[in-house]
């Protein structure tokens, strides 16, 4: 029997056999397509517990699924990436649906950290942080590799830790060298860089500025980062 609305079914759920036999009779051509069931058959609360125990994930249990974050999310609406739905990610993490969450491993890291969601969420969920925490959880479990976003994070933290002041030029240079730019909208990033240069928000010149007494502060910063579960490179 043909499946009329095949596009509504996830491809991996469709099993097609070349031939099929039922009680000794050849039924292929009629009954050779099977659809795997989609019933949710278990909750896994440990996922949310683990995420909630991280500094970024601590507000996850506040979420009541209103969708305010998604309705204004830049990635979801302006960039039109419909699969990027922070409300839905939080829901999946809360019920612990590993299988469904894994489908978004190429998507979930794309948060722009614009924080519009954080500004609007009526429950004061730190949405941007929570998404980051879910992303981190997925990487820790090995469900996804390092992402351009996580490499950016590492680059950024490493950069700041060096002198206590962000060196944007170095940051961009290292990042471009890692050929991550192509994952982003390169033209957009270049334009932004130029604008930052023009308005003086990008430091240039050979002198690397340094925070006074940084050595001591750095130790404390590293201790805090480590305590918060951040793995220093």
């Amino acid at each position: 029997m043909p499946i009329h609305e095949k596009h509504l079914i996830e491809k991996q759920k469709i099993i097609q056999k070349d031939s099929a036999e039922l009680e000794g009779r050849d039924v292929s051509g009629q009954w050779n397509i099977f659809i795997q069931q989609r019933i949710l058959s278990q909750y896994h609360p440990s996922m949310a517990d683990e995420i909630a125990s991280t500094p970024d994930g601590r507000t996850i249990n506040r979420c009541w699924q209103c969708g305010t974050c998604t309705s204004g999310c830049c990635m979801h609406t302006d960039f039109g990436l419909r699969e990027f739905n922070p409300r839905y990610f939080i829901y999946l993490a809360k019920i612990g649906d590993e299988e469904e969450l894994k489908k978004y491993k190429d998507v979930i890291w794309r948060c722009l950290a614009c924080n519009k969601c954080v500004e609007r969420c009526p429950k004061d969920v730190r949405v941007e942080e929570v998404i980051h925490a879910i992303d981190g959880y997925m990487r820790k479990k090995g469900w996804m590799d390092d992402t351009p976003a996580s490499r950016w994070d590492d680059e950024y933290v490493g950069n700041v830790l060096k002198t206590g002041i962000l060196d944007e030029i170095m940051l961009l240079r290292n990042y471009i060298r890692d050929e991550e730019m192509k994952e982003f909208n390169a033209g957009y990033m270049m334009r932004m860089g130029m604008n930052m240069l023009k308005t003086g928000r990008l430091r240039t010149g050979p002198i690397r500025h340094r925070t006074k007494g940084w050595k001591k502060v750095r130790k404390v910063a590293e201790e805090i980062l480590e305590k918060d579960g951040y793995e220093l490179q």
Binding site: C66, T70, S71, H76, R82, N85, R87, R120, P122
Partner: peptide, 25 residues
């Protein structure tokens, strides 16, 4: 829940929400 309201065409107002059942803006 509506996140914001903005101006639409012909003097209308646009209610920007996520339809959480559709999972779509």
């Amino acid at each position: 829940r509506i996140g914001a309201i903005s101006k639409g065409d012909e003097g209308s107002l646009v209610a920007m929400a996520e339809d959480t059942i559709l999972q779509r803006p």
